[in-house]
Design a binder for these strands. Structure first.
Length: 943
RNA sequence: GCCGAAGUGGCGGAAUUGGCAGACGCGCCGGAUUCAAAAUCCGGUGAGGGCAACCUCAUGUGGGUUCAAGUCCCACCUUCGGUACCA
């Protein structure tokens, strides 16, 4: 029986494409190029998730569409294969991570090929390949060799870094240290999660509530020498670059907020002896504002210098370097205790929790530079060490956090900004009993009284500058990127640390020479932790660990790079994946970059996309790439949720409780109206019905039930496996369904019925061309060599137009709807011109490539349909002989009239007014106004 | 709290510059075919009213602009996603 059988057709065409290298990328693009990129997956042991093919199908459609239009297409795929799970697996089983990774890559490759994606598999890369990470290491060395010239806002070779004379005179090693302090890749002490019980350093994701996720052991935060990347230098460049890319507004906003640029002022508050205050101020007036803060002053950053008159106290973070100096004897015990408690809290704990503010008085005071008032200095963990100067001036009247803190500890509140007259809490605020963070006119601010916020800001900064106690300043939320991990399964750093005769580190470093790249991972006996707070690579044999170069002995860096490293630049390697002389050939890079379309999940909105933009800009500054931004157009696919679930609630007695009455108590448990905890239970679709706004039990309409789709997860058991969908419906159906579900960007629930629906469509397409009743595979009798009649021609050409436009704009769901209409129309026709069928198959081929190839061949095509030119629509064919135009009375449609499509305004109105129905409706009424939109409608306003 | 996205039939979703709300699909109902079923084909399907032609009401809620609002403006509600003391 010649029925549509995807399980037979699909593997056959996949093999054909493989053998014929149908989707091989031209080495250099022709007239028009399109680089279409997917975010490559982490090859997890679970295999492909239905979320993967969503974005992959979208890009595949665009790629196949562009090829048919004669463009040169680069559409590659690879694997982001370093990562924690493979290492966990290795620790447990002793199997090398490489083995498991390879197995997973093979499985992913099989699944991706099963879906018929038109990737150029010859260009596949995996970040774990030695000839890939050789270049990851090479780029790291570019970062290591670069400093950021703030003046030109450009990264430059470290050799070009001007050395200040006072450093130059101190000799080689001083110069080396100075350079190290300026490199984009540098070392610093940072806190890591050390778990003594497990004997290993943990990633942040592996720590929950201060305990290890595995085994629930306590985790301590200890400082360790770490590699950092100076991404903050590029903050302005990363911000400005966003203006020139075609990205969703939301993602740009997210990146902007992440970078978090703010402008304000740095201000020094005198903290020395009262007696020395006048001399200090005098000295500052002549010397000006120093770039580094000195011991006699506490420096703060503020975005509201205009509120300086309202600064009634100061706060330093528990980690502030001046804290000890500021703490008086009587307070020292309290302060010490407070800081110790704070140090046990993780970043997350400090942020979460009840948010009740805590803090301790240091015992000392500072002098407010604008009015000479002494104000107390506190220490509190609501001030972060890593932002600004790690200290603030507190203006409780105009900052929510300061206000809360002041209330709690009974500190003075002085309003210095008068809110707008219509502000509901103006009286409270003016009385110092409320907080107002907006703008207004200054009060209680001496000479500045009455001036508007922005004017006061500028004036105060001017005054501070003059006195040498303040200066304009810019700050960013963005922090430097902590780039090292204490892990085995990552790229080793190509860095050598010099050791002296006794085997101790001298502090000097050097890059591994280019010719010695890649630095491969050492062979280890096993992957178990060695029990020291050091990376696992420290377990390696001395053969690997120690290197002699130019007569000096070195120890290798034992940290590895984070998973982000490999994904920062993979889009460049696809362009020239086998090049062993350079990461990419400059000519090819120039020809293919930038990426024209980049599709992936929104979870990478900040980190991955920011990191790779940063690397790209460094490579750009150093002349290794030709464009300033890597990704021209970005699209975020929406999440695919599991099927809709209905859930009802049962009380202790097993009685159903309406979801309307279910609330959450303080512990987060669901409770019924009587306050007792209720249990949620999943209901099948046929015991519920819609009533009004919500769903209720059929058996008891008084009981409301919740209906919702959830994120797919193993624990919920709602994960859909692509292998099963392909087995049951075929890859073309899966592709088509994922595109038909709704707009690509939307979050959508899965419904297996819907897959059946698109499969039904493909069955109809099959029967439109194949005789389903014959024993052999023969064309349907209705197929004919005749030309289309006018109606058929119009159907064909409107379909070509719609599918072309919708595919270009990535409105895949409506393109598919139109192809369904085409199929419904021609299935009904007794005569189906082959010409129309062939053109239709080309339209269908990007969406459902296997069935399109099969039917194309059956209709006599002898080359892959992927090589066919995209059909063109003819304007003349779209024209209809007559159209229906509604005639409205007072905006409501009452009558419909038939007119020629190109009818003029006058004729349209006249036709409408002559229509017998219109005439009868007009009886006894007068037309007040008439609106005529040619080809659209007639609206008569009558009385 | 803040930021972002979104609320349209039983469900997923369509709807050019404001111009016939509900394309297409699922589900459901009816019919044809069949000994019967599956499959297929044809028709119907927002709600309420009427024998009917038709009428009334409908795009989260309440206002507004307009000849005309799902679409524009104002206020609010709900859901989802992100984020969290950044001075």
């Amino acid at each position: 029986m010649p029925r549509y059988n995807p399980s037979e057709i699909e593997p056959r065409w996949q093999a054909y494409w493989d053998e014929n290298q149908t989707f091989r990328t031209p080495e250099n693009p022709g007239q028009k190029k399109r680089y279409i990129l997917d975010m490559f997956p982490y090859p997890s042991g679970d295999g492909l998730h239905v979320g993967h093919p969503e974005g992959y199908t979208a890009t595949d459609i665009v790629a196949r569409f562009a090829r048919c239009q004669g463009e040169s297409v680069l559409h590659p795929m690879g694997f982001d294969a370093f990562g924690l799970p493979a290492e966990e697996h290795a620790i447990k089983t002793g199997e090398h991570p490489r083995v498991q990774t390879q197995r997973n890559i093979d499985n992913f490759t099989r699944q991706l090929k099963m879906l018929g994606f038109s990737y150029d598999w010859d260009r596949m890369v995996a970040t774990t390949d030695e000839d890939y990470f050789r270049w990851t290491q090479w780029i790291f060395l570019v970062l290591y060799d670069t400093w950021f010239d703030a003046e030109t806002q450009k990264g430059r070779p470290i050799a070009e870094l001007p050395i200040p004379p006072e450093i130059a005179t101190k000799g080689e090693s001083a110069i080396g240290r100075y350079q190290d302090g300026q490199r984009l890749a540098y070392q610093d002490d940072a806190l890591v999660n050390w778990c003594p019980a497990l004997g290993t350093v943990l990633a942040n994701e592996e720590v929950q509530d201060g305990k290890s996720e595995r085994g629930d052991h306590p985790v301590k935060r200890i400082p360790l020498r770490q590699w950092m990347l100076r991404i903050t230098s590029y903050a302005d460049r990363l911000l400005d670059g966003l203006e020139n890319v075609d990205w969703p507004f939301g993602i740009k906003k997210l990146q902007q907020d992440w970078i978090g640029r703010s402008t304000g002022a740095e201000v020094d508050f005198f903290v020395g002896d009262e007696a020395a205050g006048a001399a200090w101020a005098e000295e500052r007036r002549s010397s000006g504002f120093p770039s580094e803060q000195s011991g006699q002053a506490l420096r703060v950053y503020t975005t509201r210098p205009d509120t300086l008159f309202g600064a009634t106290y100061m706060v330093v973070s528990p980690e502030h370097t001046m804290l000890e100096q500021l703490t008086t004897q009587t307070q020292s015990e309290q302060v010490r205790e407070y800081c110790e408690k704070a140090s046990f809290k993780s970043d997350r704990e400090r942020a979460d929790g009840d948010r009740d503010k805590t803090g301790v008085f240091t015992g000392s005071h500072a002098t407010n530079p604008v009015n000479g008032q002494p104000i107390p200095i506190w220490v509190a963990d609501y001030v972060l060490a890593g932002y600004g100067t790690g200290a603030i001036m507190a203006v409780p009247a105009h900052d929510e956090r300061d206000f809360e803190f002041a209330k709690q500890f009974g500190l003075v509140v002085i309003p210095v900004v008068d809110p707008p007259a219509d502000h509901p809490q103006r009286d409270q605020i003016m009385a110092g009993e409320g907080c107002f963070a907006g703008q207004g006119n200054a009060i209680n601010s001496d000479a500045f009284d009455g001036q508007e916020t922005n004017a006061v800001k500028a004036a105060v900064i001017g005054m501070l500058c003059e006195q040498g106690v303040g200066s304009e300043a810019v700050n960013y939320k963005l922090r430097d990127w902590l780039f090292s991990r204490q892990r085995f399964w990552g790229e080793p750093f190509p860095i050598l640390h010099e050791v002296d005769g006794d085997g101790n580190l001298t502090g000097a470093k050097r890059a591994v020479p280019d010719r010695d790249l890649p630095v491969c991972l050492p062979e280890l006996e096993d992957f178990k932790p060695h029990g020291r707070p050091e990376p696992p690579l420290a377990k390696a044999d001395d053969d690997w660990l120690y290197v002699t170069l130019d007569g000096k002995r070195y120890r290798r860096e034992t940290n590895t790079m984070p998973q982000w490293a490999g994904s920062c630049w993979y889009y460049l390697r696809y362009i020239d994946p086998k090049n062993d002389q350079a990461l990419v050939d400059p000519g090819k890079e120039q020809a293919w970059m930038p990426v024209d379309l980049y599709v992936g999940g929104a979870e990478h909105a900040v980190l991955h996309l920011l990191y790779s933009r940063f690397w790209h800009k460094v490579l750009y500054d150093r002349g290794h790439v030709s464009c300033p931004e890597p990704f021209g157009k970005l699209v975020n696919q929406g999440m695919i949720l599991g099927g809709v679930e209905f859930s009802g609630y049962l009380n202790q007695a097993g009685q159903p409780v309406s979801s309307k009455q279910v609330k959450r108590n303080a512990e987060g448990d669901r409770i019924g109206p009587d306050g007792s905890i209720v249990k949620s239970s999943t209901l099948s679709e046929d015991v519920v019905e819609k009533k009004g706004e919500s769903f209720v039990l059929k058996s008891d309409p008084g009981i409301r039930v919740d209906s919702r789709a959830f994120k797919m997860s193993k624990s919920r058991g709602n994960v859909v496996n692509p292998d099963e969908v392909v087995r049951e419906y075929g890859a073309d159906s899966l592709r088509l369904y994922e595109m038909f579900m709704g707009p690509l960007e939307a979050t959508k629930p899965w419904a297996m019925n819907g897959v059946g629906g698109v499969r039904n469509f493909l069955d109809r397409v099959w029967r439109m061309m194949v005789d389903a009743k014959a024993d052999e595979l023969v064309l349907a009798a209705a197929l004919s060599d005749q030309a289309c009649d006018a109606d058929q021609n119009r159907m064909l050409h409107t379909t070509i137009k719609k599918v072309t436009e919708d595919t270009e704009s990535m409105s895949f769901n409506t393109a598919i709807a139109r192809m369904m209409e085409f199929t419904n129309f021609f299935t009904r026709a007794d005569c189906r011109p082959k010409e129309a069928m062939q053109q239709f198959l080309v339209l269908l081929s990007p969406y459902a490539p296997h069935i399109a190839e099969e039917l194309w061949q059956l209709l006599g095509g002898n080359e892959s349909i992927a090589k066919q030119p995209w059909p063109q629509w003819e304007k003349e064919a779209l024209v209809e002989s007559s159209i229906e135009v509604p005639v409205q009375f007072n905006g409501k449609v009452k009558v419909k009239i038939q007119v020629a499509p190109d009818v003029s305004k006058e004729v349209l109105l006249q036709t409408a007014l002559e229509d017998p129905k219109v005439l009868s409706l007009l009886e006894g009424k007068t037309i007040v106004k008439q609106i005529v939109v040619p080809g659209r409608l007639v609206n008569l306003v009558v009385k």
